[in-house]
Amino acid sequence: MPSVTEIAQPVGLTLTLALIVTAILLFVATPIAWWLTRSQSAWKAPVAAVVSLPLVLPPTVLGFYLLLAFGPNGPGGLIAPLWGARTLAFSFEGLVIASVLYSLPFMTQPLRTAFEAIGDEPLEAAATLGAGRRSTFFRLVIPLARSGYLTGAILTFAHTVGEFGVVLMIGGNIPGKTKLVSMAIYDFVERLEWDKAHLLAGGMVLFAFVVITTVMLIDRRVGRIAGVN
């Protein structure tokens, strides 16, 4: 019989991680996406490429470099001693940092698309009416890009929930700290405890279905509004 903690603990931990990562990326990805939309800089293409790298690279590449970077010989070895640790690996904080990097394109791309869809006209109109750049951004751009924020948030959340390779390589599989749902499923399958694996894996299938359907519905609604305009 599956015990409650065996199932509930990884689920709770995964949801917490996904929420934190989504919240952080809302702040981190906004300026990046805005800069990528408006900038004329020659650096635009390379920066856009770097942001998109996690889409293409296998998670093992990120996992490998993070393992080295988190350790005592990397930058992690400089930061971790601040709270008495010697490595960022094997910690929830480490997973947050890794997931923010790994999910960055999933927030940045929808925001960039939404920002680009706004176009120059509303911004010029706002400027004509005497609005400052700051209030234009917060009172015009963000409300107009809300569907981008919604899509980005859902995709980031879902992608963080579905993370496996990076977590496998830097997590250390510690119950209550770094053992996420995807790890728990892998463990259950390895140990031939397939009833528990079914419980979590079936839940993930359902979750993914709901997420994808939601994103498609949002996209369609947005498309319809744009069509009417």
């Binding site: 393992l67 988190f70 350790g71 010697r86 490595t87 690996a89 830097i170 250390g172 599989n173 510690i174």
Partner: peptide, 21 residues
């Protein structure tokens, strides 16, 4: 203080990368 490697190679890799002493 135990960190679990998925197999014995990963346990070694945790040590060699300096993340576990």
């Amino acid at each position: 203080r135990i960190v679990t490697g998925e197999n014995i190679s990963q346990a070694l890799q945790f040590i060699e990368s300096g993340n576990a002493e």
